[in-house]
């Protein structure tokens, strides 16, 4: 149980970068689509890229904090279980 979760913690390392990149990509794609069917002068595209950057950093930090909180809760639970059963 604990070993598996320690492996899964390694996921945190690439989480932030990929989240930011995926947000920028999705926002850029949406902006490009809107831009193509409205004014076709790249203004909305650039604005939506800015939105994507802000959203990427916001969502990335939120996700990181949530994951860290989750793992810390699990670690505390494991510690309690161990001290309860082994009484060491």
């Amino acid at each position: 149980m604990k070993g598996l979760r320690d492996f899964a913690k390694l996921n945190l390392i690439t989480a932030f970068g990929t989240t930011v990149l995926a947000n920028i990509a999705v926002a850029g794609f949406i902006g490009w689509l809107i831009d193509k069917y409205t004014f076709n002068n790249r203004v909305i595209f650039v604005i939506s890229l800015f939105f994507g950057t802000i959203s990427g950093i916001y969502n990335g930090v939120r996700e990181l904090l949530k994951e860290a909180e989750k793992y810390e809760k699990f670690d505390k639970k494991d510690d309690n279980d161990n001290s309860g059963s082994h009484s060491s």
């Binding site: 390694l10 945190l12 390392i13 690439t14 932030f16 990181l64 793992y71 670690d75």
Partner: peptide, 11 residues
């Protein structure tokens, strides 16, 4: 956990 969290931002 906190070390990996800081690693993520650096990485």
């Amino acid at each position: 956990t906190r070390m990996l969290l800081a690693d993520a931002v650096a990485e």
